[in-house]
Design a protein around this nucleic acid. Structure first.
Lengths: 135, 135
DNA sequence: TAAATTTGTAACATATTTTATTACAGTATG
DNA sequence: CATACTGTAATAAAATATGTTACAAATTTA
């Protein structure tokens, strides 16, 4: 299974970009994603930690973008929500007495690292503005 | 979370490649991966369905490669164990009355589809033999 | 032919991760 | 002061991944 963090975060950011002058409430955003507002606030907390959005408490409060959407890339959003991409590892430590078991994770990491470079290159070329303007 | 299917499968195939003349038992393979033999047999069942390995029941039975390792690419293995790569979707159906909610999944799919092409290109260039010869 | 070993598979159990819910303190608005 | 938000903790529920047990069927070998 793969968590919806990236998808949710980019959904939030797209909405914020569409309403650049408003503080959007987590309830409103949750209504578009069809998600519990608390989970929206959690993702917003992550975005705040990365200084991508700012929010205002209290009545008529909410969240708005704090950066230029043309300068925020999907790669940055990816890195805020995922560490890296990959095809996973076996859960348990493989047998260190086996030449294959001993080294497989290192070799997989190398493979995945190259995957990440390629994906990052793609995502670096797309800004939030680009993504949002598709709608 | 991400399942270990790909990692386990490539581990199995690497072992089979290292012992091209033997039928390896699921117990032996499980010992290298440090995994329950039943789970190994499940992945082998998948490989059998794709005609990549053959196995023999009964005493001294086990599994061996049924294809040329130089011609089996990591892309093929990837496709047997994952459908596609991507950064996920929100779990619930987004709001179809919202212009963003209505289209976000399609746009994400397009994005992921391009990611898959890039990753596939990479994995296509690596054979099981290449991977196994690193050890 | 009998004993031993191995696959194949089902059924069930446990662990982990992801998502949802409830609750409420704190903050700003009007 | 009433209202409507955020922020966050605590807990529950759902989904997925992994592990275990059990046993029939197949094959080898003694």
């Amino acid at each position: 299974m793969i968590s919806g963090k990236f998808a949710i975060t980019i959904h939030i950011l797209t909405l914020l970009h569409k309403f650049p002058n408003d503080y959007l409430s987590s309830e409103f955003i949750a209504g578009s994603i069809n998600l519990n507002p608390v989970l929206v606030r959690k993702e917003i907390a992550n975005l705040k930690a990365h200084h991508v959005v700012e929010s205002k408490e209290g009545k008529n409060g909410g969240t708005k973008l704090a950066v230029n959407a043309a300068e925020l890339t999907l790669k940055q959003i990816f890195e805020m929500t995922f560490e890296t991409i990959g095809l996973g590892f076996a859960k348990n430590q493989p047998n260190p007495d086996c030449p294959v078991g001993k080294n497989i994770n290192q070799h997989l990491e190398n493979l995945y690292s190259e995957m990440n470079q390629k994906v990052s290159l793609q995502l670096e070329g797309i800004s939030l503005e680009d993504f949002s303007n598709q709608f």
